[in-house]
Amino acid sequence: MEQKDLEHFRALLNQMLEEALKQGELTLEDMTDNNEICADPADRATVESDRAFTLRIRDRERKLIKKIRAALQRLDDGVFGICDECGDDIGVPRLDARPVTKLCINCKSKQEADEHLRGD
Rank of each mutant, 00 (worst) to 15 (best):
I68V: 06
M31H: 05
G91Q: 03
E7T: 11
E29Q: 15
D40T: 12
D40R: 14
D30V: 11
D33A: 13
H116Y: 10
Q111M: 14
T27N: 11
R56Q: 08
D76T: 10
I37C: 05
T27E: 07
I37H: 08
C38L: 12
K108G: 06
K66A: 08
A70W: 02
Q73V: 02
N14Y: 11
D89A: 14
L64R: 02
V100N: 01
A70L: 03
T101F: 07
R51A: 02
K63P: 04
K102E: 15
D50H: 05
L6K: 09
C38F: 13
K67M: 06
S109I: 15
A11T: 14
K67A: 04
C83I: 07
S49Q: 05
I37F: 09
M31C: 08
E25D: 09
A71C: 03
F80E: 01
N14K: 13
I37W: 10
V79W: 04
R58Q: 14
A71N: 02
R98V: 14
E61I: 07
D43N: 10
A45H: 08
A11M: 07
E112G: 07
C86E: 06
I82K: 00
C86M: 05
F80G: 00
A97M: 12
M16H: 08
R56N: 06
K22Y: 07
G78T: 06
K108D: 11
A42R: 15
K66H: 12
